[in-house]
Design a protein around this nucleic acid. Structure first.
Lengths: 190, 190
DNA sequence: CCAGTGATGGGACTTGGTCTCATCGACCCT
DNA sequence: AGGGTCGATGAGACCAAGTCCCATCACTGG
């Protein structure tokens, strides 16, 4: 028998989400989160650098996106490379069993400024990763920045729709659809 | 004679910037900031909701931008409305006497994640303001989101160049130039 | 002369976050 | 079997951010 229950980070994240839903983020103590997971404050901070980060554990999204961009066909334009990466993301990360969790998580994030702030930082870092990945494909700097901004917008649109309660589509097609719509707006011609 | 020295918020912001430059953000205490300004911790938190916000006091940027978008010619496209607003911003806010302060401030922001995080939130809120302002002009939702993202990118490009040490141009022309470049990338056609 | 106002000071208190040391089952090695 | 290391955890001291409440005191108007 193992000495400890397995998967402490996941248990902590689950406890945190429960408590944030019940009592709100500000009214929830790290000690309470830890206790509900059968752990202590010390252990919480051993797994997460701060209280906000407990809802941002995964963190593989940026990695998957940059890999996807890197492995897109060499002839693909910047936004097409991003689209390929979003497809890969849909296959690997935004699986159906994560939708319920993502939905609850997103509702909590939207309700608390401190968490929205962390999310905003993740968004910036995600965009920066995309710029870097496009840069490695030889995309000119400015073009990469534009494509990354639009790519991040597409990913947000797709994610919002994927989260949507009456929507059970896969992430990949939603991303393709969102990209097509963004392209159709004419962007630079506005 | 006044009982207190005037302009407490400005003195606090100046003290904070000095200390952040000298010792770094994490190694600077709110009490130290307050003492250098001849005040106390209580007074600091009466003027700023938290330690980060002392470098984000102005806060008029979003207001000026939305006003500028609202008062653009009705026939102007979304991005042109944004460009007008950026011009107004250059005349009102990004004046030459603020460049030295902005440069020091930006260097500190870039050096500390906690401050970058606050900046990321401001960026998101700025984009949201622009979307709302475009919405009031009757711009379709998706088109507004695209224009706001590109507008924020243009704003960043122009600001980076305005801050640049070897650059003494006015903000307005820099913004026009950045906008032209973003348009030239072809954006949606990528 | 007196009461009200408003920016400030002072200090108690909670919580997030850091750090160091102790604990103790699992595992390995002889 | 016995002993030593390892690794995840617990315990608790400690500091700084942020909240709250009450006191202070020059200025102002009557």
């Amino acid at each position: 028998m193992a000495r400890w229950q397995p998967d402490a980070p996941r248990r902590l994240a689950a406890s945190a989400l429960d408590l944030f839903e019940e009592n709100g983020y500000e009214n929830t103590t790290v000690i309470e989160i830890a206790e509900r997971a059968g752990l202590t404050k010390s252990t919480f901070f051993r797994h997460f650098p701060d209280k906000r980060e407990v809802l941002f554990g995964g963190g593989t999204v940026a990695g998957l996106l940059t890999e996807g961009i890197a492995s897109a066909p060499p002839a693909a334009g910047p936004l097409d490379a991003v689209a390929d990466a979003l497809d890969a993301l849909g296959r690997t990360f935004f699986t159906a069993d994560r939708r319920a969790f993502s939905r609850r998580r997103q509702a909590v994030l939207n309700a608390h400024t401190e968490l929205r702030e962390r999310e905003a930082l993740k968004r910036i870092d995600l965009t920066a990763s995309m710029i870097e990945a496009l840069d490695r494909r030889g995309v000119p700097s400015l073009s990469a920045r534009v494509a990354a901004q639009l790519g991040t917008l597409v990913w947000e649109l797709a994610f919002d729709r994927w989260i949507d309660i009456d929507n059970s589509e896969d992430f990949g097609p939603l991303a393709r659809q969102a990209l097509a719509e963004v392209r159709a707006t004419g962007a630079a011609r506005q």
